[in-house]
């Protein structure tokens, strides 16, 4: 990968990687660090990494950083506090925010595979390569994640029709 291609990677994938990181960590500073470290590693290996594989390399690197951090801070869990369901808040509740809240309830690996699938559009096979899992495992993780999100939405009183089409 040339210097120019690397710069193209920055322009194309920095926002996406930052989104992936911030959704996973719920911490902007940490997400920035992860993005910076991932691109630094890409630059170090830019002569070996092909431009077509750069995106997958960036997300794999970021995922590995998350795993390292998780191993270091096993006891610390970055889970958002789910707001208690309130009948009077339901009508003003945004579906987007509800899904965001539901996403935060997922485990790390569930969150990762759902983010890669929904935001980046990766196939199950590509997600399996990034996360170093089997394709069947990825499918199971995604199914369980969606099931969990659905249960949360139902518990919040959002019907299937509303989930699919918003308001």
């Amino acid at each position: 990968m040339t210097r120019k291609e690397y710069n193209n990677c920055v322009q194309l994938f920095a926002d996406r990687l930052f989104r992936f990181a911030i959704k996973k960590t719920c911490d902007e500073a940490r997400a920035r660090d992860i993005v910076q470290q991932s691109f630094e590693k890409l630059w170090l290996k830019h002569e070996e990494v092909n431009f077509s594989k750069a995106k997958a390399y960036l997300f794999t690197t970021a995922h590995n950083f998350f795993i390292d951090e998780y191993r270091k801070n096993k006891k610390i869990q970055h889970t958002a506090i789910v707001p208690e369901f309130q009948e009077n808040r339901y009508d003003n509740f945004d579906l987007k925010d509800t899904l965001e809240i539901a996403l935060k309830q997922l485990s790390d690996i569930q969150k990762t595979v759902v983010l890669l699938r929904d935001y980046e559009g990766y196939s199950y096979k590509e997600i399996a390569e990034i996360c170093n899992l089997s394709e069947a495992q990825v499918k199971v993780y995604i199914f369980r994640a969606r099931k969990k999100m659905q249960q949360l939405l139902i518990s919040m009183g959002i019907s299937r029709k509303k989930v699919v089409y918003g308001n």
Binding site: A14, F18, R32, D118, Y119
Partner: peptide
């Protein structure tokens, strides 16, 4: 209940691109 429960597209801008170039 979950057949189409997908995350919607969210646009987030990373402000530190210039430092990465």
């Amino acid at each position: 209940g979950i057949e189409l429960c997908y995350l919607e597209e969210v646009n987030i801008h990373y402000a530190g691109k210039e430092s990465l170039l």
